[in-house]
Design a protein around this nucleic acid. Structure first.
Lengths: 355, 355
DNA sequence: CTGAAAGCGCTTACAG
DNA sequence: CTGAAAGCGCTTACAG
């Protein structure tokens, strides 16, 4: 057992009041630092609290105030560096403002996301930040509003109105990446994502239910269209996780003629593409060029270092938290979509298209 | 404003009871699925709940039961892949058991850790998991026991008795890494850590206040001692963050004679060593060998791929959570130190010592 | 400045 | 199986 006091019943305001010989209300006022208390009484109460090892019960306080000073966050997977960094941003802003954060992973599944939201709302979080697994299945997101708690969408939008969101301009990010490739003479460019997609192959016009991916595809296609590339959607590979990013990569490389450049929709995909290309004996960028979304530190130390689309991930999280707290303080602000810009960081994984 | 109901007062058990025409106790029993309720009454209550969009208040429930079904976690930095993965393990076990987790970063500072613990305890978490910033400053850890909440140490031990801990066998891990280097003929081997250390240079016998680092240093030194290496502690570099890992690496490489191998105490350090070595025009492993602690995916795709000490990080987190929940259920189990083994994964960053 | 009372939204004995 | 009452640990008017 623990070396400390065997932890009998924890001291409460009532206990302090008894010892300090004041009323509960007065003890609470001194302890909670609100209302008026004379110095003498305050000293007595604080001494009693010290003596009894008093520790306020935040839940009891929340019940009265209707504020839990807690914000809930649901992300796809905290193990993913993208979310880990965003979470840091959220966390820092929250802590700074005196808020705690409850984290739940959804595994990018709407069922888990629904359950997570329920748990958070039941636990009376003051606000919730979610990276929605789907922009189409959003009925449950309404629960936050119904429960009177502000909701901020992180990194992805959702269909319908009435949502605050903090995202990145994925469309122009994809455009920039695609243009960079076109500039180097590439004509057969692939876009690889692991977002779940019901069809075996992508069809233009079909809805992609993750707004970040949908926007990237839009930027990708419009750039290729404008360049006069025929049928550019044939090289769009969604749902690469199911078949395996390595398998998908290999297919792309074995087309006739093969793809000469690949845009990876996140750093995990890029890693897999990178190692597949190399283990197949091909060189980057001589045989195939590669651009990755996200800029984790390792992308700078590979051979060659990767050209990437850098996103302000930490800022994304921080901004989402700021927006959420702003809502908590004032419910009457208008819905807003905050959109951050990305930056194409040219390193050495993009080269001239092979002849 | 939100598109949903303007969110007037949320429905409570009392509201449901009124509508269903039963007592609050009965409504609560049906809603909370405890006690006995006739089917007819249950149906009526559930219908009323549906109609009023009822959502239980978990805080109110916690106040009565004394259980919040929440566990608190304080780690150095969730942005660090090590903690992100451990957090995933904690999260998965917690969710599975119906627990939520509140996460707070300490930035490896004991002041923040103290504050974090207070917040968690005040919020009535049922248990707390902490990766203590220091094994020496641990008075505040006793607060958990004093408040009657189980505490499990993650990845690092703390001085004193009465702690549950889940760690890795760092001493033998360091031994294995060092032996691997000796086997390749290295005699001047450095160990680089970013753990804060008060002295400019490490002195044998001085306390290192992070148990993981202390254990690695022990394993490192005893292996070199056994190999008859003279004064092996001269190549121990702690607190590398302050001076910069690149600066420290450069110094090591410019000693006369220079160090021929480096053990990096985590993957972030390894990344920095790796790029410094290369930007200085040296080759790995021809000029200098490198072994990194931790095995993030990128270490397999660098040129050359890195030899690493793989730690079961996810398992570490999961085990800590399991232990915490076990404590929550039964306070009377004995303290335990769970120690996981690591594995040396030989890739290509270790070569023969240059002549 | 201080206190008595009621209340936050549940659960828990205790009766019936 | 159902209900009336008390209680969890605080805060909030309302008096004085």
């Amino acid at each position: 057992m623990s070396p400390q006091h065997p932890a009998r019943r924890a001291a409460t305001v009532a206990d302090i009041a008894r010892v300090a010989k004041v009323s509960k209300a007065t003890a609470a006022r001194a302890l909670g630092e609100y209302g008026q208390v004379s110095q003498a009484v305050r000293d007595r109460v604080l001494a009693a609290a010290e003596e009894l090892d008093y520790r306020p019960n935040a839940l009891a306080k929340s019940m009265n105030t209707g504020r839990s000073n807690t914000i809930g966050v649901v992300v796809g997977d905290i193990e993913n560096p993208f979310f880990a960094v965003a979470m840091r941003g959220i966390s820092d802003v929250a802590s700074e403002a005196g808020y705690s954060v409850i984290l739940i992973n959804s595994d990018e599944t709407v069922e888990a996301e629904e359950a997570a939201l329920d748990v958070l709302l039941d636990n009376q979080v003051d606000a919730v930040i979610v990276a929605p697994a789907s922009s189409a299945h959003v009925e449950h997101l309404g629960n936050a509003a119904r429960a009177g708690r502000p909701l901020v969408l992180l990194d992805r939008r959702a269909n319908g109105e009435g949502y605050d969101s903090v995202t990145v301009d994925n469309r122009s990010a994809a455009r920039a990446a695609t243009e960079e490739l076109l500039r180097h003479g590439h004509r057969r460019i692939a876009f690889v994502s692991t977002h779940e997609y019901p069809q075996p192959t992508y069809q233009r016009g079909h809805e992609i239910t993750m707004s970040s991916v949908a926007d990237r595809v839009t930027g990708f296609l419009e750039t290729l269209d404008a360049a006069g590339i025929d049928d550019p959607e044939r090289y769009i590979q969604l749902d690469a996780r199911r078949r395996g990013v390595d398998v998908v990569t290999r297919e792309l490389l074995q087309e006739d003629p093969p793809v000469t450049a690949i845009i990876a929709s996140d750093s995990l995909i890029a890693m897999s593409v990178f190692s597949t290309v190399r283990s197949d004996g091909l060189r980057i960028p001589d045989d195939v060029s590669l651009i990755a979304f996200d800029n984790p530190a390792w992308t700078a130390i590979t051979t060659p270092p990767l050209t990437v689309v850098e996103q302000p991930i930490y800022e994304l999280g921080a901004a989402a938290a700021r927006r959420a707290l702003q809502r908590v303080r004032d419910e009457r602000v208008a819905d807003a979509a905050l959109v951050f810009e990305t930056r194409l960081l040219s390193r050495e994984s993009v080269g001239a298209a092979p002849a």
